[in-house]
Write a protein that binds this DNA or RNA. Structure first.
Lengths: 140, 140
DNA sequence: TTTTTTGCAAACCATTTGCAATTAG
DNA sequence: CTAATTGCAAATGGTTTGCAAAAAA
């Protein structure tokens, strides 16, 4: 046999399909536990990876480093608030001109992704609102 | 006093300025060790972070999860080979239309970055060359 | 001399993995 | 039945941190 439809796999996928906030594995774990209190974090990771292999979700790496999970719908980009760390979906940016140049040079371009960083409406409006609030880095 | 010009800080920055392959902290560490054999990995991390705070380098998060470091020059994008994991610099893609929409909604957009994934010329030409060779994910 | 920085080692945290027990097919 | 999957716990790997010794200013 192959791929079995376990309660855990279904629950992980359900959490993802009904989440619009790009949860981390830990967050998925907590939500799955509402339904299956005995589920383990390892199982959540294994199932997330299974879903990724099947192309049913996308792993999003943001500036902070931890993986965020996104039920695969259409290809799209992201806007990350550097203050509250919320992640918003954006329409996909057009294929950058560099892609054509790469192809001309014999490269194969499978996909591309863009991330925008800044302050969301709420945070931009906030009193002390102008600069990040925690965390590290930059992403590429 | 503030910021001291130590040999270690200088060496870390020199490695970065003369590297064009977006090394990880571990790789920077190995290269710095050629000059300062007693340097520690912790010191490399501390100095990388110091340089980042000063805006003298950028941290690039690729699909794999580890941080890659890039001496800050012009804003630019990246092409990552999914087979050999080489990272190439690209001219910066134009600001995506979504940025304007976000600004109209009261968001502040500080910066954006695009990453392209695929196969570099060498790997695309290779015999078994068509699909990844290791690693996980996706980046955003 | 005073304060920052280092080297080292232990701590951390996200993620992965080995294994015996469980469960879907 | 029997192969895939789970829960648990231990292992991993990248990164951070506490502290006494070393080195800038």
């Amino acid at each position: 046999m192959t791929q079995r439809a376990t309660r855990q796999l279904t629950a992980v996928y359900d959490v993802l399909r009904t989440s619009c906030d790009h949860p981390t594995a830990e967050q998925v774990f907590r939500r799955v536990r509402d339904t299956l209190p005995r589920v383990s974090l390892g199982t959540v990771y294994r199932n997330l990876d299974k879903l990724r292999e099947q192309g049913r979700l996308r792993v999003v790496r943001l500036a902070s480093g931890e993986a965020h999970y996104d039920a695969m719908v259409e290809a799209h980009d992201h806007f990350v608030c550097e203050r509250c760390h919320a992640v918003h979906d954006l329409d996909r940016a057009p294929t950058p001109p560099a892609a054509r140049r790469l192809r001309d040079d014999g490269c194969v371009v499978h996909w591309h992704t863009t991330a925008l960083y800044g302050l969301c409406g709420g945070c931009a409006a906030e009193p002390g609102g102008g600069r990040p609030r925690a965390r590290a880095g930059q992403a590429g």
